[in-house]
Design a protein around this nucleic acid. Structure first.
Lengths: 153, 153
DNA sequence: TACCTAACTTAGGCTTCCGAAGTAGCTCAT
DNA sequence: ATGAGCTACTTCGGAAGCCTAAGTTAGGTA
């Protein structure tokens, strides 16, 4: 039996790859003209719906508190990426919507991300990369719906 | 050609899994009695050498500035996890060393991490998990030694 | 009407980083 | 040997990104 190949533990792999991904992404965004982009913005852009999302929804999906999300939206509003519109169905609520500039930025960001995935795939092999990504996706879902493993009375 | 299964993009996978990993790890550490552990501490503990490491080394490996690493070490020193010893080879430098309590904490942390990996492996299948981890490890190395390849999209 | 809850904002604080500037020790050319 | 310049580290001030607590306004219910 071969000794298992040495590798960093999951935590280090995740942390380091996340950092490199973010660095690379924001370099690409800056290169594409989105110089004001910040990592925290992804907590909004990752979840915002095309029809507009409520602050409460965004905060829940990003697993942040309402004030934290509110500040983020403030910032993106200042940058002209999103706008707050009154929710016609509830005057307490506001719908956070992408502006035209916001949609444009989203397209840029998606292209940048696709570019990074492409680079990664080239580095470790397309199929191997895709398989790993699918495993991570499956793991994330398994953790989200956590009736844990075996013990299920 | 089947349509590729839907999945989150790498960035989201990495970010979300990292968060869950950290949450889980620190729950386990607290449960094990390491109530003062903080995520930032891993920037030291992940890289510190058994013979002691210089601040400069630690900062470089963790990709942080010297002042940031210095503060972290201050904190871990206050907690009795590490100590600063004069470096016999250079009186400007200090060797950051684990104390006995530090070693004990490291053992606890390693056990907690192993427990999490075990849980992950159970959720997606041992072999599949290990393969994904190895792919991530390969990717990280490929990014670290980045003679890249050819085309930049 | 009165009350409870929900959506959001404001205020204040903590952590974790960073850049700039300072101190002490090493090295090397003269 | 000594002054110039570099290196190792610390200190200081500040920004980013989050939090909790407490407020405001609107909706639901009796």
């Amino acid at each position: 039996m071969s000794t298992p190949p040495e590798r960093l533990h999951v935590g280090q792999l995740l942390v380091q790859l996340t950092r490199r991904f973010q660095t690379e992404l924001f370099e690409r965004l800056v290169a594409a003209g989105l110089t004001d982009a910040r990592v925290a913005h992804t907590h909004v852009t990752a979840y915002i719906s095309a029809d507009g999302s409520r602050l409460t929804e965004l905060a829940a999906q990003a697993r942040m508190t309402l004030p934290a999300m509110s500040e983020l939206v403030d910032d993106l509003q200042r940058l002209g990426i999103v706008e707050r519109r009154p929710d016609p169905r509830d005057r307490r609520a506001k719908l956070i919507c992408l502006t035209d500039a916001g949609w444009e930025a989203m397209r840029t960001a998606r292209a940048a991300i696709a570019g990074i995935e492409d680079d990664y795939a080239r580095r470790v092999g397309r199929e191997r990369f895709e398989e790993a990504a699918l495993t991570l996706d499956a793991l994330l879902r398994a953790l989200d719906a956590p009736p844990t493993d075996d013990a299920r009375s």
